[in-house]
Design a protein around this nucleic acid. Sequence first.
DNA 1: TGCGTATATAAGCATATAATTATATGATGC
DNA 2: GCATCATATAATTATATGCTTATATACGCA
Lengths: 115, 115
Amino acid sequence: METTESIDLQRASQILKLLGDKTRLTMMKLLESHDCCVCEFVAIFKMSQPAISQHLRKLRDLGLVKEERRGQWIFYSINQEHEDYPLISSVLHHLPDQGSSIEELEAQGLRICCE
Amino acid sequence: METTESIDLQRASQILKLLGDKTRLTMMKLLESHDCCVCEFVAIFKMSQPAISQHLRKLRDLGLVKEERRGQWIFYSINQEHEDYPLISSVLHHLPDQGSSIEELEAQGLRICCE
DNA sequence: TGCGTATATAAGCATATAATTATATGATGC
DNA sequence: GCATCATATAATTATATGCTTATATACGCA
């Protein structure tokens, strides 16, 4: 039964590959502080909506984030029930807070809050 | 000077991308327990020597591992002086021990020890 | 019902990645 | 110096990734 361990490493590397993209990593760090809707990400990353949507899909496909519709918008949040949440969380804790990117948007009046 | 933070995330995502490959992640986990020479990796991963060498180069290029020649062989070890070693180390601590892959080789008489 | 907004999906394309094979370099021992 | 072993590099190829544009879906409201 050595497959158990290899599956774990397999899964861990998949997760790390997802986090090994600056956009997705920043998304996760932002989600650590508050739930975000897609349009907030679009504003923050100055990236096309489909590009954002596709990154979110990858995160969702591996269960790193959950989606929840609130009226007109779909909010994303970190899935703390993920089997490997301890790994994910500890990675995020090593990253600098992303407050500044939000503040920048506030300053420019571009901060979007969909609720 | 908000560039500092974005450089950090940039660097973190580069590191995570490197770790987001099963072969390299396993290499790092193995190196956590003991220094390895290239031929040991070749035996463990049942992969061509150039393939191993290229993975090691990527890890070396970002400073995650150090190389050291010992006689005929080149041994790799984890670079604990890496600026982001705390991140790297905490990722590795979440992974299952790789003792079994070594034991398997021992059992088959394939374990290579170059010293 | 029909329109506008928010989001997702599909198709296409350019670039990145990881493997292979072939070749080069560098140390050891005769 | 030459042969051999250990490792690195180069060139090539197949596949994966991330973006773009175009289109589909789903909700909210008049």
